[in-house]
Design a protein around this nucleic acid. Structure first.
Length: 464
RNA sequence: GCUCUUAUCGUCUAGAGGCCUAGGACGUUAGGUUCUCAUCCUAAAAAUCAGGGGUUCGAAUCCCCUUAAGAGCACCA
């Protein structure tokens, strides 16, 4: 039985693209093995909690198609799936650890810890807790009875801690390098380290596929598993997405939230497809493939350990591929939904879609390209003064077109250009600007057809 | 600083000792198609496989060292 999970924290406005990338692998591994994919919310940090973050995250994940078998919304056999609702569980295990002598109480103030760290740094020592409270547990129990604020710390064994990461092999870290990690905070909430171990065990998670950032603290988790007498899960630490400067992908340097991309009209299929290519490649070298295909082909052993740069340019190219693969009607639906708030004339959108399908890379490219269909141009990219007389000839010709179709329009306009002895490129650029205001536009004849004869006449005659 | 991890074109990657004078994709450049742009098609430039040592008849692939990059060292996750 394979059970995987992602455990995002609601500390941002949406899901981080890095979480989606690891989520994709967890999802694929579970599905490929007919196992379960669990979503658990790690909301133990009360100070960084972002309101509405969890709701948005869960909605995005569902929308992307990373459907959980168990989650805070749908429940499951190991509910609750929100850590803030599991406090008594963590407390119980913290007490068990203390009873076993694997953890201890600490009443040190933040100020004392701060000072301690400063002096350690000044002395160029490893910064970690000095076990001040460990040596005075009797006193501390009295302090606690009198209501002193306290935390529970892990008593880190001063020995080599060895574990295996499927991707990276045997990893050894000596306990002397590790801090006596706080397990239970003074507000009664667990830290990540306690919560993650307890939950992953209780929820019977078999494979932990998570970011490389956790590699150095995994020994702490290993110590906890052993102290509690539990079997270790399989560890798979995958590389972090990077900014172009190779630092860890961050919102200071890049858009990182799913909504940053979806909100500009990147299709969810394209986002997923692009992210799947971060640290993994299709066995046939294909760039474009579906989530289903990915699930079938994915294997943990094929994950790359080098950290990839997230390249928005390739994402946009891929999105263009997805847009072009859509049927006209599908694209119409997506564009209409994307511009819902603008309340654009949907019949007009529908007519223009075939003209722009291969010209846009993301949905938000639509309006800038097609604005002239919905409102007349407010300015011209090139001064049309010198073409006034040509344009009146154009107007005459237009008025005689009875079959208002792109082909007929094109033929008539070509004739004007020829009769007037103006080069095609110059003539059509002028006409294009008269109609659309811009040098770059969808195909002119078809655009004129959609705009209608009267509207075209108005725009041509309006130029002065 | 200490610990851990990583290292193939600008970017994503193929590559499991001979098939590699290193392949594909994005991007870039040039050309074709075209009334613009885009699509599409063709071509090109682009990696002395981080550097140096080994092992081997043979190394991008195995080992070691160096260098560089990244991550982690919280009552944050």
């Amino acid at each position: 039985m394979v059970r995987t999970r992602i455990a995002p924290s609601p500390t941002g406005k949406d899901v981080h693209v890095g979480s989606i990338a690891t989520g994709l692998m967890n999802f694929a591994w579970a599905k490929k093995n007919n196992g379960q994919f669990v979503i658990r919310i790690e909301d133990t940090d009360r100070t960084r909690l972002v309101e509405g973050g969890e709701t948005k995250m869960l909605a995005t994940l569902a929308d992307l198609g990373l459907k959980a078998d168990e989650s805070p919304l749908m429940g499951g056999p190991f509910a609750p799936y929100r850590q803030s609702e599991r406090l008594p569980i963590y407390k119980k295990y913290a007490e068990e650890l203390i009873a076993k002598g694997k953890a201890y109480y600490c009443t040190c103030t933040p100020e004392r810890l701060d000072e301690m760290r400063k002096s350690q740094q000044a002395a160029k020592q490893i910064s970690k807790y000095d076990r001040h409270c460990f040596t005075r547990q009797d006193e501390i129990e009295k302090e606690i009875e009198q209501g002193a604020k306290h935390v529970v710390r892990l008593l880190m064994p001063q020995e080599d801690i060895v574990f295996t990461d499927i991707l990276r092999g045997k990893i050894t870290i000596n306990g002397s390098q590790l801090d006596d990690q706080v397990l239970l905070k003074s507000d009664g909430f667990p830290t990540y380290h306690l919560a993650v171990v307890v939950d992953d065990h209780l929820m019977e998670i078999t494979h932990i596929i998570r970011g490389e950032e956790w590699l150095p603290s995994t020994p702490k988790h290993v110590v906890l598993y052993r102290a509690l007498g539990w079997d270790l899960p399989q560890y798979i630490h995958v590389s972090l997405l990077r900014n172009p400067d190779k630092s860890k992908l961050s919102k200071r340097k890049n858009p990182v939230w799913a909504s940053d991309y979806l909100g500009q009209g990147i299709l969810k299929e394209a986002l997923l497809n692009y992210l799947a290519l971060m640290g993994w490649s299709h066995p046939e070298g294909k760039d474009i493939f579906s989530l289903d295909e990915y699930v079938q082909l994915f294997d943990i052993k094929d994950i790359l350990t080098t950290a990839p740069v997230f390249d928005p340019v390739k994402l946009e190219w891929m999105n263009g591929e997805y847009i072009r693969a859509l049927s006209v009607d599908e694209l119409f639906q997506k564009i209409a939904a994307f511009y819902q708030e603008k309340q654009l004339d949907s019949v007009l959108i529908q007519k223009t879609v075939p003209l722009i399908q291969e010209r846009i890379k993301k949905l938000s490219d639509y309006y800038p390209l097609c604005q002239f269909f919905f409102e007349e141009p407010t300015g011209y990219e090139i001064d049309l003064k010198k073409y006034k007389s040509v344009l009146s000839t154009v107007a005459e010709s237009v008025s005689t077109i009875s079959d208002w179709k792109a082909i007929a329009i094109g033929e008539a306009m070509q004739k004007v250009a020829t009769d007037q002895g103006i080069k095609n490129s110059e003539f059509f650029q002028m006409l294009r600007i008269a109609i659309t205001g811009k040098k770059i536009s969808p195909p002119l004849n078809e655009s004129m057809e959609i705009l209608g004869k009267e509207e075209c006449m108005r725009r041509i005659q309006k130029v002065r």
